[in-house]
Write a protein that binds this DNA or RNA. Sequence first.
DNA 1: CTGTTAGCGCGTTCAC
DNA 2: GTGAACGCGCTAACAG
Lengths: 341, 341
Amino acid sequence: MADAHAGRRLGRATVYDVARRAGVSQTTVTHVLTGKRPVSEATRERVYTAISELDFRPNEMARALRRQRSHSVALVIPNIAHAIAPMFARHAGVRLRGSGYQLTIHETDGRGDVTREVVESLASWSVDGAIFSGFTLDADMVDLLRRRGMPFVNAGIDDDLPHDWHTVRLDQAAGIRAAVELVAGRSEDPIAYAGGPLGSASAELRRSAFSLSMADIGRHHDDELMTSGDYTWADGRDAGSALLASGRPFGAVVCANDLIALGVISTLTQAGLRIPDDVLITGFDNIEADGMVHPSLTSVETFPDRLAELSVDVLLTAITDRATQARAVVVERELVRRESA
Amino acid sequence: MADAHAGRRLGRATVYDVARRAGVSQTTVTHVLTGKRPVSEATRERVYTAISELDFRPNEMARALRRQRSHSVALVIPNIAHAIAPMFARHAGVRLRGSGYQLTIHETDGRGDVTREVVESLASWSVDGAIFSGFTLDADMVDLLRRRGMPFVNAGIDDDLPHDWHTVRLDQAAGIRAAVELVAGRSEDPIAYAGGPLGSASAELRRSAFSLSMADIGRHHDDELMTSGDYTWADGRDAGSALLASGRPFGAVVCANDLIALGVISTLTQAGLRIPDDVLITGFDNIEADGMVHPSLTSVETFPDRLAELSVDVLLTAITDRATQARAVVVERELVRRESA
DNA sequence: CTGTTAGCGCGTTCAC
DNA sequence: GTGAACGCGCTAACAG
């Protein structure tokens, strides 16, 4: 009988080649590979030998086409080089590989149109699910994802709205509260707040967490001692100047992130104030630089590893069991004490 | 006549659906999509209408299977969260998307066995080519890549050996030389060197670049004023202590990287020395923290964007024209002057 | 426990 | 300028 497959073999061995060499059918080879049905010990043995002799590897594209899923998960983020994104990506990747999945990374630059385009493309790549991290999905996008039947989780979001999709939140408020309690316990003087940009959900949340925490511990906050600006070192310097210019005395500055804190320290130090003797400073994010500056910066740690692992776990559950109700997980934050407070 | 394809449509529209709706054949739809053969204006119009009406998107897995290439390239790195890796990944991704490619990232933790496994898997994903960054490929791996017919480029390597494959090197020596010349022009006192780990190719290269540069400008280097240690802040602190303990006077410390430099500054400052008045300090890598410390750190910049773009360009050329001779590109480095020197 | 057969959705001959 | 038909390599009914 003519061999329909003979004479191919330009590149790598196929299941068919393995089957022929092992003297079995393609089906059997597949089932040795996937373990989806029992194969006799002897046959399996022969198949494995053939596989290693031919240096066979299943073609993942063919698999994905056939199965309609690629055993890969997408991470969709604004910027892979930003803040905790690299750590998040790293830990998510490790966790996923542990479960037999591959991670692909897609940047959006924070643009909605790009995000939409990415989502559309994910479906055509047979991606099994997606993790959206570092921003909150809008209703349109959620709708699109659902229409495409793509399981997803929205991770690292820092608003405090209720959402009816899987979320893994960062507990902003708890971090700020810990910082407030720390400095309040160490200084009777007024406590200042160097905040993030007005209008940013995350910044507003941190700001109100500050006010609430102050009220909770019976301390009055002074609006003159609250600044706002971008999450940058330069704006942190400005914040420091503004606080000094206010003429109000203050014994501590709780900052909305580390870059701002470092800027504040820079200004105050230049003005002759000593940290932490004259003013206590706390940051937020616990970036690498915190331990390398003088004074080293007390900061609120986000756990990118926990965040990533929880996100992956939630997603994998959603992939396996598409009917699960929307889960909302919260990742705690923790104060890392250093010299500045 | 029975329609063999009728009744499917569980998920997304296929070329066949588009063809039927536009009243043409699959073939024509494909050719409208790929532009690989002329299609009359009228037909094309009808096809496009059908495409948008059905919200059609080609299934990338089917394409990849058919074409034996996925229009994607792999970035293989030890650790996505390390040093310039995030920036590299970002710029490589942007550049690739600009050319219609998708980037996938694969971490190896610096382990040879993982690297090998990754390479094997790349072939089965029909990846078009690979960028290996942050380490030098060994002969075995190169051999494997060639057997698999996978175009690749080895980027961000910092040894100075000749290689017969596509490379994009970092010019270590030029950066060190610039630092030496800068501090030599500003201080007549002996120049110290705080180096990286003994035995690391990169560290050895930087160290010898230091010695050579010193010789070139007619300055004698003192072995007592040369330290070694890991590329960490802690080891930088030790380096600073060692230099002080040597009892030799020195007017500058050229450091093998920024973390070491920040550690050195930390120690020297604590010992009462003023930077840059008493001692000039230079770093290497130009990390984000450099601009946020006091004094801010003069450092040697690596251009991750240039490195990434050149790597992509070399790779794409190799993919297009597999016969090109091994290319060796060098990315310059540049001194960024700040307060410390 | 094993084999036969029919596609997954597309690109690409070969024919007209 | 357009179609019919085949197969990329694999998995999954269906059969025995």
